[in-house]
Design a protein around this nucleic acid. Structure first.
Lengths: 201, 201
DNA sequence: TATGAATGTAAGTGCTTGCTTACATATCTG
DNA sequence: CAGATATGTAAGCAAGCACTTACATTCATA
């Protein structure tokens, strides 16, 4: 569960990372350029010299952190594993990705409707890719006779939905002290339910 | 899927409902008091006469829509049904509750940083009731020998998580034209997966 | 009919915010 | 060393914002 490493060498990168954190924490409107500058240890005017406007800075933050290949590379890796084990790996990888990228996910999840089409599309592409990747894994497993007949894309939504809701609640809503269990235990139970709910026989 | 009816008789109520919609759509900071006034068909000063400040108006909006029980009373109704049917009823009721209250849910989701204490409290009151109701149903079903052994609270999170994520994507993210299927079909698949994943044998 | 409560109109105040301008300083490079 | 490049300091502008004040109007009811 390591956090994302960024090269914080140039002023530009420092500003981008600082902006990411602040936009995530306080929202776009709740963050001022003075605040970003102060926390980044630069002069406010430097931000405008690099990014022209707050709006464009925001776009660059989004562009820099929009990420696609979240699950894609994982498919070949898990294709030969036993079903339950594969699901566990997928679940953990997905949860890890969410956790590492939680800042950008928070921005997109809570402000998406208030921003231009461009950002909408990035988020859309991300979600679509993940659903379809997992759905295609399920289809493969059906052909192998391991999974029963089901709508594989709906199944993908079910599986990822459990995990996303769990992530969402843990990261943003629930106070730590109220946690039921650690994430491995919970993932194991989720996978058990889902696996025996989708397996043939 | 009817939307929540409010008495829009008094000026006060009209302002509260207008503010709810706008805060939900544009966020607290993205909504101006002028805008609320205009859309509510009143003078801006009327808002301040009623609510003193924008901040207090926001609080009243939250207070007014603090959740009432969502699943309560459903247990006895469902206790004697076949398992799958019971899950379907629960899922639909839950999805209905979310849909009816989508505005306030959206506000709580995006403004949680602004009001950590209050929103946490309301959120917990809402979620706890649902989790516990469902968990206690699962426990009962285990005792009856219908369900296998599992952590009933985690199972409740799995089930509600699928539905919540589905709701979240449908309401806030996915453009209508891209929908896979209608909600009844999806709920049926969710219930199938979950039921066969939790049933004994 | 007279009074008071609710609402409207209009003007304005003080603050914050994104962004600009002008000028100074440091550092690197040819 | 000379010039270019990146950054800092400081002041300030124009707009938008929440909120206020003063006064007028409507309307129910005592």
């Amino acid at each position: 569960m390591s956090s994302q490493q960024e090269d914080l060498t140039t002023t530009r990168e420092i500003i981008l990372e600082t902006a990411l954190k602040l936009f995530s924490k306080k929202g776009y409107l709740g963050t001022t350029t003075r605040e970003i500058a102060k926390k980044a240890g630069t002069a406010e005017v430097t931000i405008f010299r690099h990014f022209t406007s707050k709006e464009k800075l925001f776009e660059e933050v989004i562009n820099k952190h929009s990420f696609l290949p979240a699950l894609q590379g994982l498919l070949p890796e898990v294709a030969e594993m036993p079903y339950t084990e594969a699901l566990t790996v997928i679940a953990k990888r997905f949860l890890d990705t969410l956790t590492i990228r939680k800042d950008i996910i928070k921005i997109m999840h809570s402000e998406i409707q208030r921003y231009p089409e461009k950002i909408h599309k990035i988020y859309h592409a991300f979600i679509d890719e993940i659903f379809k990747t997992l759905a295609s894994y399920f289809t493969t497993m059906q052909k192998k006779g391991i999974l029963r007949e089901l709508h594989s894309e709906v199944a993908a939504r079910a599986f990822l939905g459990m995990i996303f809701s769990y992530f969402d609640a843990e990261e943003f809503l629930i106070r730590k002290k109220y946690r039921i269990d650690n994430s491995d235990t919970i993932i194991k139970e989720f996978v058990d339910i889902f696996a025996s709910g989708t397996i043939k026989q």
